[in-house]
């Protein structure tokens, strides 16, 4: 049984290695703490489908009514396009004023910035990172 486990584990590791493209990401592992996934609830202020990475901006209000401006680094526009998402779809998803819970990895600097993993909107719609270091699947 142990032998089977070892053989199958090795095969799975090999398959993951060859089937997942190794991509370079510009300083992501340096700027963000990729060891800890965080979630932040806020209200969308802007979505920008632009290079080098699209961006989601949202405001988070604490119990005392203080507002903090957050941003999320998302996929490059061509990455979203290749995954089948149009600009209109993205803008319809992240409309200003929508409540959103953003999952991601926070900047090591402590600034209110994450590299994006997933967003869940108040109506239950979800949007996940289309690959890259913010990808949690």
């Amino acid at each position: 049984m142990k032998t089977y486990l070892i053989v199958v584990s090795l095969l799975m590791a090999c398959l993951l290695t060859v089937s997942t493209p190794a991509t370079a990401h510009h300083g992501t592992g340096i700027s963000y703490d990729l060891s800890k996934l965080v979630s932040v609830k806020g209200v969308v202020t802007k979505f920008a489908l632009s290079n080098p990475h699209s961006q989601l901006y949202f405001d988070v209000t604490d119990d005392k009514g203080n507002v903090e401006h957050w941003s999320a680094e998302m996929n490059a526009p061509t990455n979203l396009e290749r995954s089948g998402f149009s600009r209109r779809q993205m803008l319809n998803l992240f409309t200003p004023g929508s409540e959103v819970t953003v999952y991601g990895f926070r900047s090591k600097s402590g600034a209110p910035v994450v590299v994006f993993s997933k967003a869940v909107l108040a109506d239950g719609r979800e949007f996940k990172s289309q690959g890259g270091p913010g990808n949690i699947e």
Binding site: S31, A48, Q55, S71, S107, K108, S109, G110, A111
Partner: peptide, 11 residues
């Protein structure tokens, strides 16, 4: 992008 994400993320 630099103003909104890259600079603050880099401190």
């Amino acid at each position: 992008f630099n103003q909104g994400v890259r600079n603050p993320a880099g401190g």
